[in-house]
């Protein structure tokens, strides 16, 4: 097995703050897992199971209370600037800047990375075209549909050509038909561009459609089940897999063969 590009080792995150409910509670506890280069790992779990905290730890937006997060051998929180251009994030909601046109939103990451204007706009236009948004380059976000805006945000992440793509339920606010199409495009782009990706979702169907591996989280963010989707080769097996995941998520089947309380 090749070296992991992402590794969590006994990672815990305990929030301290004025909010009595949040203070002293572990959002993530003793979490360990690895992701190898080129993998597309789906993380699924109910709301409040610590997925987003894990995500923020991975993105370097939070520091762990204990344990070790390593991405390409470095600490994403301490070596924050080193990851410039190496990690990109597609968030829940498009998070486009309303004062920037579509092309300038896509070029935003490249601008922060100091790329010359003509180069970054060329790259941004190219990504907008790849995502079927030709003709909308100069449109402002308010003039785009929800699906189009999310495409722009995907283009923004891909435009910086990162090694790792982190996605936090990016299609959850879209209708089923739009999100279905975008999921397909997203997987195609990840595979074609050989990216490593972690995709957070609360939808089992989405996890099954996207992930080559699925990590099922239960609070406080420990991996209750780990499955490889390649194991399910037909519809029956996929339905069975879905049932197993659902059972673990809802707590009806706390312990399985795959349980890994790290």
């Amino acid at each position: 097995m090749s070296e992991p590009i992402i590794s969590f080792r006994q990672v815990s995150k305990c929030f301290t703050g004025k909010d009595a409910r949040a203070a002293g509670q572990f959002a993530v506890k003793d979490l360990s897992f690895d992701v190898t280069a080129g993998e597309l790992v789906a993380v699924v779990g109910k709301t409040g199971c610590g997925k987003s905290t894990m995500f923020n730890l991975l993105a370097g937006l939070l520091a762990p209370t204990s344990g070790e997060v390593r991405v390409e051998g470095r600490d994403p929180f301490r070596d924050f600037a080193w990851f410039r251009g190496r990690i990109a994030v597609v968030f829940q909601g498009d998070r486009l800047m309303p004062w920037r046109s579509a092309v300038r939103n896509v070029a935003y990451g490249l601008e922060l990375h100091g790329k010359p204007k003509s180069e970054r706009l060329d790259v941004a236009r190219d990504w907008l075209h790849r995502l079927g948004l030709q003709g909308h380059e100069n449109d402002y976000p308010h003039a785009l549909s929800g699906g189009m805006r999310q495409r722009v945000s995907i283009a923004r992440a891909f435009a910086v050509n990162p090694d790792i793509l982190l996605c936090d339920e990016p299609f959850s606010a879209l209708d089923e038909l739009t999100s279905e199409g975008l999921r397909r495009e997203f997987v195609k782009l990840v595979r074609e561009n050989n990216k490593t990706s972690i995709f957070i979702t609360h939808s089992i169907n989405e996890a099954l459609q996207l992930g080559s591996r699925i990590l099922v989280f239960r609070p406080p963010a420990y991996i209750a089940l780990e499955v490889h989707t390649a194991q399910a080769t037909n519809d029956d097996e996929r339905a069975q897999l879905k049932q197993s995941i659902l059972a673990v998520m809802t707590g009806e089947a706390a312990a399985t063969d795959g349980e890994q309380r790290a």
Binding site: A59, G60, L61, F80, A81, F83, R84, G85, I87, A88, V89, F91, R95, M97, Y108, G109, L112, H113, V160
Partner: peptide, 9 residues
């Protein structure tokens, strides 16, 4: 938007 911007370091 702040989180989004910070994700680009």
């Amino acid at each position: 938007l702040l989180e989004m911007s910070l994700s680009f370091r």
